[in-house]
Design a protein around this nucleic acid. Structure first.
Lengths: 228, 228
DNA sequence: CGCGGCTTTGATGTTCATCAAGTAAAGTGG
DNA sequence: CCACTTTACTTGATGAACATCAAAGCCGCG
């Protein structure tokens, strides 16, 4: 976790802050903190006090929480442009979920009060933030329902499809999480994750080389995802 | 579904619109539509175009969607002060979920563009709305994780406990939904909902008289909810 | 090179869905 | 208001889906 600054050439400047005035943008650039996290680093800890407004600049992170029976539950994998410190930022004082880097990641942080001030002064920005928050929450809820309606094989097919089409936009990718974490994501045991993936391999739908997954028959995978 | 107007004495005026200027409040009162729905009436339909900003004044509603395999999935039961047209309102053009009255309900509706204008003009109001939206989304996500970590009996205990403590604040209440809908809520079959409730009855933890549920041993119910 | 976490496979048992069949309750039309 | 129809509820029996336990190979890392 290092701290450098390259705001001037940041690709996200306009994407994230479309409706912000140029003087505000300069302020943000000068006060923001850019943090580097290695794969596996914890970015925010459940219950920790919220003091910044953070967004993911590059990399990949997971949102998770500890269930009451002390089991990890994974609820979302966020890619750049998805908020990191989303959801509770404006309604809670403490994080309800942990955020962990599952790939080397860069996070930009701003003092939460500065963002609140910007919202106060700039209603276009406020509406922008609301839209982004809505979209993410909606996605989490919808995906959770999508997973819930499927059985083991359907869930695996859905998830591999999601990684391939939404996260990596490629038929070949390296799984960013372990089999155990996949289980925590879709609510199934580690062993059955492996069994289901092995059967996909046997049927010639995917190829597995350790963490590298290649979807050799995307159509069949889609069908399995649809009917599972 | 009838349309009357009693804004002047509405209990929610200040709760909902704390940070709104009194001239705006008058505008809202004059343009809002108050709608009465009977138990079972559909308030909004999945995929229908969003044209209003709506909130629940009294009664109880359920949010649900049709899964890709055409099965109903219930995701939230909203009580007064919870948004009805929440979530997608600012990010989507169409409803992603259906809203149905599960008790006789009164809903107030405002043209969505008027609310957007208010957000534009009044940043305190904007922040209020953001907080409310955050809270609801957060609740839905958290509850879904709470349910997911439990087995059949734990889910039933959790849900009865939720009805009793959060919705009705009473140990005796009338179930607002059918056994089938409970199944759609917690992701279990109707038959097993009944079996689990019957076993709670046999153990003397609850009493069942049709739709009337009385929790006779709240502590035991809590324990079952915690360890399920 | 050895330890711990990740992965894999097989065997066994539990949990839950499904099917079937019947009762109760609630809505509907004459 | 009653016969009729539909929907909701209930119980039991059976089988499928999934968790758990056990054991072994693999891989990365200190």
């Amino acid at each position: 976790m290092t701290n450098i600054c390259s705001c001037k050439y940041c690709d996200l400047r306009d994407l994230f802050f479309t409706n912000i005035r140029s003087k505000d943008r300069e302020t943000i650039c000068s006060i923001k903190t850019e943090l580097y996290f290695n794969k596996g680093d914890k970015i925010f800890q459940e219950n920790q006090k919220i003091e910044t407004f953070a967004y993911l600049k590059s990399g990949l992170v997971k949102l998770s929480r500890l269930s009451s029976s002390k089991k990890e539950q994974l609820l979302f994998i966020a890619k750049p442009l998805d908020f990191v410190s989303l959801l509770s930022v404006f309604s809670e004082n403490n994080y309800k979920y942990s955020v962990t880097a599952i790939e080397d990641s860069v996070v930009c942080e701003l003092d939460i009060n500065i963002v609140k001030n910007l919202i106060n002064e700039n209603s276009d920005f406020a509406l922008d933030i609301m839209k982004k928050m809505s979209k993410i929450s909606d996605f989490i809820i919808t995906q959770s329902l999508n997973i819930r309606e499927r059985n083991l094989n359907g869930r695996i097919a859905y998830l591999l499809n999601y990684f391939s089409s939404q996260i990596y936009t490629s038929n070949t990718f390296e799984l960013p999480i372990t089999r155990k974490e996949i289980g925590e994501y879709i609510g199934m045991s580690t062993e059955n994750i492996i069994r289901s993936m092995s059967s996909l391999k046997k049927e010639g739908i995917i190829d597995i080389r350790g963490k590298i997954i290649e979807i050799t028959n995307p159509k069949k995978l889609q069908i399995l995802s649809d009917l599972g």
